[in-house]
């Protein structure tokens, strides 16, 4: 890649080399993604059906079709370092409708897993890990919800670890098996001190 060293970083970014060259592609990335996703990402024909019905797309710069394209070409760096990777809501609309019968949602999940191996992950995702570790819930119950549940004639807490905190142990065991909590704590500390 040709580097131009303009003093202004904004200008430098604007005028950087943008050619796609073969050395940016890593075929192993495509294979790895497909293995984790269980879906043939390289068969995407770029119709845009996925993005067209994606609830995240009209509200953000996230384009599932572009991630599929990166999967096709093995553009590992571009895929894993793009913060948009974390904007999928996992609603599975695209997976329902993809005419090539691919599972773009699962491709995104695979890429997230590959990113996490390199510690690429937004802190809020890690905080979810911490929350699950503490309570068994990514989004723990709160007083507003408790009141709403009561109004609907439900128990104040759902029949989960909230009602049976003795099962939190088991959840922690699973998270510890994958060193998830340990890694989350480490990365949060690195980022937030």
């Amino acid at each position: 890649m040709v580097t131009k060293n303009y003093p202004d970083p904004k200008l430098n970014e604007k005028l950087r080399d943008r050619y796609y060259r073969r050395d940016q592609s890593n075929p192993e990335f495509t294979k790895e993604t497909e293995k984790l996703a269980g879906s043939m990402a390289h068969m995407c024909y770029q119709c845009g059906t996925c993005t067209g019905g994606c609830p995240s797309a009209p509200r953000s710069t996230y384009r599932i079709r572009e991630f599929m394209r990166r999967g096709v070409l093995g553009l590992e760096e571009e895929a894993l370092t793009d913060p948009d990777l974390w904007l999928c809501t996992t609603c599975y609309s695209c997976t329902d409708r993809c005419p090539r019968d691919l599972a773009p949602t699962d491709v995104i999940m695979a890429m997230r897993n590959l990113a996490f191996r390199r510690d690429i992950i937004p802190v809020n995702f890690l905080k979810t890990v911490t929350a699950i570790y503490a309570s068994g819930h990514g989004v723990p119950n709160n007083d507003v919800n408790r009141a709403a549940r009561e109004k609907l004639g439900l128990t104040r807490d759902p029949p989960t670890t909230h009602m049976y905190p003795e099962y939190i142990k088991g959840i922690r065991k699973i998270l510890d098996h994958y060193n998830l909590k340990e890694n989350a704590d480490r990365i949060i500390k690195e980022r937030e001190g």
């Binding site: 119709c47 845009g48 059906t49 996925c50 067209g52 019905g53 005419p99």
Partner: peptide, 22 residues
């Protein structure tokens, strides 16, 4: 872009076509 889905306006019976301009 291939059309992802279509929704009908129940009053006007117009249609909203959702797709990506790829």
């Amino acid at each position: 872009g291939r059309v992802s889905n279509i929704q009908e306006d129940p009053v006007t019976k117009n249609l909203r076509v959702y797709a990506e301009d790829t």
